[in-house]
């Protein structure tokens, strides 16, 4: 167990009920300091509601939470300046330029020296690649540029925690890659990143930890490697006698053994692949290929939720 000071985000029984229906149902988040935490779930699974509660925009129906080790919402005014956030897309004043928008947000709260404002804004704009468009009105920005400005606003000061809700929404592949690199860079610098996403590949590429939301419940929460290891891996082999091979593998204890042409596959269920290989050869079966299949985060997700990655009803 890690102590409270080791957790950047910690919730206990956090619950939000909207008109009788729980949108978030007693979740227990533990986000280690320094981790990049992928908060996964289909649209409508309660991710954004959770984030809104963490940031004090919604008051929970039940439960408590701490950010950076401090009890919320009591410590909001002293804690939130250390938290950068992008929630449900960027939002700025359309009649103002990108720079003017950042100036406004920077000066609308405590703890931001106005002397360094210009330099900090320049720096943040440069980090998200928006320097050239800083003087354009926000209403002329494309969706990707708006997203970048939102990120710039979260990066105006060094943060201990970044909460990013679907940060690559509306971005082209190039922009997505840039954001991914930016997240990695921030994480390397010691910032805890809480990244919500419905894009499994995005999370798989940058995150060290994963929490899986499904219908308002947190189904699993562990390091990415543990989660992938826990999902049952499969064995796939190409042989000259598939039917016989299937019998051998079933005899070894593999489940869900399938035959398709010359291919045989089955859930390993704890049986080492080496053992399968030896058993097949000893049974006189010609093995052309045999691989333990890499489990993807998507397989793990389906295994956890028992269904695909669709919008929750």
């Amino acid at each position: 167990m890690s102590g409270p000071s080791d957790l950047a985000v910690e919730t206990h029984g956090l619950t939000k009920v909207f008109s009788g229906r729980p949108a978030v149902d007693g979740i227990e988040l533990s986000v280690p300091v320094g981790s990049t935490y992928g908060f996964l779930g289909p649209n409508g699974s309660g991710k954004t509601t959770t984030i809104r509660m963490l940031l004090g925009l919604l008051s929970p129906t039940a439960g408590s939470w701490r950010l950076l080790g401090r009890e919320m919402p009591g410590a909001a005014m002293s804690t939130l300046p250390e938290v950068g956030a992008l929630v449900e897309g960027p939002a700025f004043y359309p009649w103002m330029t990108g720079r003017e928008n950042l100036e406004r947000f920077d000066s609308m709260g405590p703890g931001r020296p106005s002397r360094s404002r210009r330099a900090r804004i320049d720096d943040a704009l440069a980090r998200v690649g928006l320097t050239a468009a800083a003087g354009k009105k926000y209403k002329a920005y494309s969706l990707g540029m708006r997203q970048r400005l939102g990120l710039a606003s979260a990066l105006l000061v060094p943060r201990r925690l970044l909460v990013l809700d679907e940060p690559t929404n509306g971005m082209d592949p190039q922009g997505t890659r840039e954001i991914r690199n930016l997240v990695r860079e921030l994480a390397t610098g010691g910032t805890t990143v809480f990244l919500s996403s419905h894009l499994l590949s995005e999370v798989e590429q940058v995150c060290s930890h994963v929490g899986v939301m499904h219908r308002g419940k947190l189904l699993a929460q562990q390091s990415l490697s543990d989660l992938l290891a826990s999902a049952a891996p499969r064995l796939r082999a190409e042989v000259d006698q598939p039917e016989e091979a299937a019998q051998v593998l079933s005899g070894l204890g593999l489940d869900d053994v399938l035959v398709a042409g010359r291919q045989v596959s089955g859930g390993l269920a704890g049986v080492p692949p080496e053992l399968c290989c030896r058993a097949l050869v000893e049974a006189g079966i010609g093995v052309r290929m045999l691989v333990p299949e890499q489990v993807s985060l998507e397989d793990a997700f389906v295994a956890l939720t028992g269904e695909g990655f669709d919008v929750a009803g």
Binding site: G56, L80, E88, P94
Partner: peptide, 13 residues
């Protein structure tokens, strides 16, 4: 406009 949530997160109070 959605700017209210960012003002509150800022936190403007």
């Amino acid at each position: 406009m959605g700017t209210l949530r960012y003002l509150l997160i800022r936190p403007a109070g």
